Amino acid sequence: MVSPGIMQQGSLFLHAMAFGVALIFCYDLLRIFRRGVPHGTVWIAVEDMFFWLISAFVLFQLMYEKNDGKLRWFVIMGVLLGMILYNVSLSRFVVRFGSFFFRLILRVIRAVIMGIVKILQFLLKPLGKCIQRTCRTGKKSSRYVKKQLKKLYKTVKMGLCKL
């Protein structure tokens, strides 16, 4: 017969391992996002800082609820063991396939938005001609409108290319 104290600590160890697996899985989601939307070192550092701060608070919450806030090294070892087991076994595949699908989704979104931009260009082209005919200054106004529309198009295109 196993004592209830040992059962409770065994359950806590398994919860800690599950937390370690969930923690690295969430970090893998962050890595997938970084591969799909690349950004600089400063933003990566800021993301990591917030991720690990939030993780520390959640780990503290786990220890507070399950073990009355007592610091137990086997809990930290359980978290580390869960992190290592997940990282060695599944992490590589999750990041690889997750990145592939995330990039695929981004490409589809980009294609749809570019299609909408092309349709808007097609629809707004007669508007430029109409403005050219009705304005007093004619060419000057149409050049201005055309220039503004071209700036807008380039801004949208550059923004989409950064995705």
Rank of each mutant, 00 (worst) to 15 (best):
V2Q: 15
S3A: 13
P4L: 12
G5V: 07
M7T: 10
Q8V: 07
Q8I: 04
Q8H: 12
Q8L: 09
Q8W: 02
G10V: 04
S11C: 13
L12P: 02
F13A: 15
L14T: 06
H15Y: 07
H15S: 04
M17Q: 03
A18C: 06
Y27M: 06
Y27R: 11
R34E: 11
W43F: 09
D48M: 12
F51L: 06
L53N: 08
S55C: 10
A56V: 09
L59H: 01
L59S: 11
Q61T: 08
K66P: 00
D68P: 01
V79F: 10
L80P: 01
L81C: 08
L81W: 02
M83Q: 13
L85K: 01
N87F: 09
N87P: 00
R92H: 15
R92Q: 15
F93N: 09
F93I: 06
R96D: 07
F97M: 13
S99G: 15
F100T: 14
F101D: 01
F101W: 09
R103V: 00
R103N: 05
R103S: 01
L104Q: 12
L104I: 03
R107N: 15
V108D: 04
R110M: 10
V112H: 02
I113W: 11
G115M: 07
I116P: 05
I119H: 00
I119Q: 01
Q121N: 14
F122P: 00
L123E: 12
L124E: 11
K125C: 04
L127W: 03
K129F: 11
C130K: 12
I131M: 06
C135E: 13
R136H: 09
R136C: 08
K140Y: 02
S142Y: 08
Y144D: 04
V145R: 03
Q148T: 13
L149E: 01
K150W: 11
K151N: 14
K151I: 13
Y153C: 02
V156Y: 05
G159V: 03
L160R: 07
L163A: 13
L163C: 09
L163V: 12
